[in-house]
């Protein structure tokens, strides 16, 4: 019998890749740009500084990858959490395309913004 091919292993790969990237990078970025700078605890980096940070192609590629992976991580986790909380396995037909579709849309927007 031929094994049925499913995209699930790749989705789990994106989930765990995104989990690691989010774990290593997000807290410090949220701390600086989301909490300390808006509260005035530190001097907010001026626009020119942020532009200079985003200038190297490698940084923009990395940021696009980080955003994409984080979104797919969240999509995967939200999909299964909602299904477990509601015991709604039958929702998967709708929920899976909705979650991954949103993650894909967000990734495309990030690429359009950065390039």
């Amino acid at each position: 019998m031929r094994a049925r091919r499913t995209p699930e292993p790749y989705l789990w790969l994106l989930f765990s890749g995104g989990g690691v990237v989010a774990a290593l990078l997000l807290p410090v970025l949220v701390l600086i740009f989301g909490v300390l700078a808006p509260l005035g605890v530190i001097e907010p980096p001026p626009a020119a500084r942020v532009r200079a940070l985003l200038d190297p192609l490698l940084v923009r590629l990395a940021l696009a990858a980080v955003v994409g992976l984080c979104l797919f991580h969240a999509a995967h986790r939200i999909r299964f959490t909602v299904e477990e909380m509601t015991r709604g396995g039958r929702l998967d037909v709708v929920l899976a395309p909705l979650c991954y579709g949103a993650a894909l849309t967000g990734t495309v927007i990030a690429v359009l913004v950065l390039f």
């Binding site: 984080c70 979104l71 991580h73 995967h76």
Partner: peptide
Amino acid sequence: SVFVAWSAAYL
């Protein structure tokens, strides 16, 4: 993970 998505969007 909801906040992971929010943080990515915020960036």
